[in-house]
Design a protein around this nucleic acid. Structure first.
Lengths: 193, 193
DNA sequence: AGCTATCTTGAATAAACATTCAAAATAAAG
DNA sequence: CTTTATTTTGAATGTTTATTCAAGATAGCT
């Protein structure tokens, strides 16, 4: 017997970064070998193939992001200031211009969900989970009395997610920091109205 | 002397469709040969290389979409019903699931703007043109008195574009027609408030 | 220490890739 | 009809690609 040597999470995070920098299709196995430090054979042994590595990276990405999301809202007192902090962090990522601070899920939705049913299924489910988390936040905000109940929490959550997807795309075409920040503020305002 | 045989616009529209179906990086020269009916040599003679063909397709795509945009608003009386018709058409595209009804500019922003400065410049400029057109619509709506002047037309235009980008991404992860339609309605509501 | 199952290694493979080019074809000009 | 400039053609190029595999290394068990 013999146990695997590499740190699975570290490998997946390295692969995530590689995929975010070049996109799935432009990231070659050689890029992934360099990024992860794993030889081709090890990658195929552990993840079946390139798409398997992407799917595993997507799962890890979702775990990491979910953790981060929970942490942001936990650090704040009140749903509204949590929302504010969350959008501030997204604006910071948009403005940074750092590819590794972009959203791997969103990139994958745009690049491969259309042509790969397996990836589509994973990404769809992750999107639903995100919605569910945000719905809970808006329910909490209602209970706190900081927003009135004109819209359903679920709808607010969906509008917020649409806004975040849009913000990330917009910021790549229009890199003006103050515009991005002001659009994020407007988004919070609209979603909490 | 000898003039070119192929119809440039038809070739570019064929290339557009090919790029929309597979994305830029996954679309091979063989795909483009099949789609356009042009032999490799002719493509390289007319467009320099694969990226040149993409950039030319992007220009044509923008021309076609601008025309369509003008037509939609021209067919309606009043800025508001124009906006309604415009979003209806986008919702229809999102719901169709037809790759050739997706947005080539948005796909390109997500797939290559990050890694190619030339594409980034073209896409950025096209986004600004789109904003400018929508700003005029919101100014018209103000003059018609159908919306009050609490927000600047430019901000409304930007929020609308963010919403449309978001809607297109969201609809690929969550293909529920009624949700997309209701998110679009909410978007109009928020942007016109 | 020795055995064995499993992982690591990295060269080898075959397919697919973007691009080039010289020959053949053809439209316009004389 | 002949010439000439330009386009079309499609096979050839050399690179890069994802993937495989047999040999070597090593961890855990007895």
């Amino acid at each position: 017997m013999r146990s695997a040597e590499f740190d699975r999470e570290a490998v997946l995070r390295a692969a995530m970064n590689a995929f975010m920098e070049k996109g799935y299709n432009k990231t070659s196995m050689q890029d992934l070998k360099r990024a992860t430090g794993l030889h081709p054979g090890s990658i195929y042994c552990a993840f079946e193939n390139k798409k398997g590595l992407l799917l595993a990276s997507l799962e890890q990405y979702n775990l990491d992001r979910s953790e981060e999301l929970r942490a942001i809202f936990h650090e704040q007192n009140g749903a509204l200031s949590g929302l504010q902090a969350y959008l501030d962090s997204i604006v910071a990522e948009c403005i940074s211009g750092d590819p590794t601070q972009s959203c791997l899920s969103q990139k994958a939705i745009n690049e491969i969900a259309q042509t790969d049913a397996q990836a589509q299924a994973v990404l769809s489910q992750q999107c639903v989970m995100w919605q569910s988390f945000m719905k809970d936040i808006f329910m909490q905000a209602e209970q706190e009395g900081v927003i009135t109940g004109e819209r359903l929490p679920e709808q607010r959550a969906q509008s917020l997610i649409v806004g975040i997807y849009g913000l990330r795309t917009f910021s790549q075409a229009q890199k003006d920091a103050s515009i991005i920040a002001s659009l994020a503020n407007q988004l919070i305002h609209d979603v909490c109205r």
